[in-house]
Design a protein around this nucleic acid. Structure first.
Lengths: 209, 209
DNA sequence: ATATAAAAAGAACGACCGGTCGCACACTTT
DNA sequence: AAAGTGTGCGACCGGTCGTTCTTTTTATAT
């Protein structure tokens, strides 16, 4: 009987554990600041043991990106997609993003934000992949805006790209200031809520406060 | 006759040159990522020569913060304060910030943004000083909003803290995405312009597009 | 039981990190 | 002229970085 090789299963489990910690550490120090020595120490593992699973730091970084993307899809995008299409789903996405920050799922707040800042202007496989994931996120926001327009919940002259930018901006700033300005997460929620209620053809689809 | 010690003058000149480059490098790699070796190489100077002016990397980091703050005050805040008080000055501040980014004054875009991300959640003299400078910036934005309200150019029920947050958020997101999304700077301008024109008692005080 | 292959440890590498030291030069003060 | 001070260099320190190589442990397959 084959199919469940305990060795492979153990490796898979190890990889997952390592990537969990790697994403958490990188959310604080960035993908560059992430050090294999510190990562190994945190996991009570030898540094060379990591090379049994990834052949270089860059490969581990790329794996961490995919891991963080999965986490984001599961914890932020997933719950929003449970809501009905349109303006409610759009706002729910913004709210679950803010919840991800306020629940401190990652100690640094957000893996992608610091990674994007860090790799701005640089070239390479890692920045390329990060750019692709970011484009995915912006496209998702734009698509939800477009759907709300098509459903008649937002006015037809809405510019999806700009509204998506505005909503994302609130999230980015909330994260950046969350350590310093206590109310930044609440400000980000209220700002987008007020903006969407101002635009919505039926504001009652959204919470009142 | 005293007052012009050639040695002191030379030192002052050197310090300024070093800090210019330090701020530029730190805008890309962050204050942590800033390496004394790379900084010295870029300036065609020996590493130990840097220690003739600052006793540790942390002191150089603190000096770089003050240098970047001066630069920001001169190139962003100063021009805006030439405009008449009120909503025009408020929007001018946003515009000169975006100009600072689009002119690529710093190769990384903004010294403070990456420094703030990097030092989020950490303790120490450097994060403390960065927090103080950020608070200064937010306070300035809030004050300009408040002035516009007092002049009757914005409605009396305006919440200065929230509007300041919204304007800052557009700037932060514009910077973060400027490397990837070509129109992010224009989006940030249009978003704030539309928002302020929507609120203003006299929209003609602001540009039309 | 034994062969096999994945997982992990351990030691060592060259490069770079922030930092220290002594020394030389330029300039001012006495 | 001598002493003192600001500036800057080159050599070097202990430590950490990513990486490589060899060896040992662990679990499956035969």
């Amino acid at each position: 009987m084959t199919g469940t090789d305990g060795r492979l299963a153990r490796g898979e489990r190890t990889r997952n554990t390592v990537l969990d910690t790697a994403v958490a550490l990188a959310s604080e120090a960035g993908l560059d600041g992430l050090s294999l020595g510190q990562l190994a120490d945190r996991l009570h593992v030898s540094k060379s043991g990591l090379f049994a699973h990834w052949s270089s730091k860059e490969e581990l970084q790329l794996a961490a990106i995919e891991h963080a993307r999965d986490q984001w899809a599961r914890r932020v995008v997933g719950p929003a997609l449970d809501r009905p299409r349109g303006i409610r789903r759009l706002f729910a996405l913004h709210e679950s993003r803010l919840a991800f920050y306020s629940e401190r799922v990652l100690p640094g707040g957000c893996f992608f934000a610091i990674a994007e800042f860090e790799s701005a202007g640089r070239a390479g496989t890692v920045p390329d992949r990060l750019a692709a994931v970011l484009a995915e996120w912006i496209t998702l926001l734009e698509r939800l805006v477009t759907e709300a327009v098509e459903l008649g919940e937002l006015p037809p002259d809405t510019v999806p790209r700009r509204l998506a930018f505005e909503i994302d901006a609130a999230g980015v700033a909330a994260l950046l200031h969350s350590r310093l300005l206590a109310r930044s997460l609440d400000d980000a929620r209220q700002a987008v809520l007020a903006r969407l209620r101002g635009l919505a053809t039926d504001p009652d689809l959204l919470p009142h406060h």
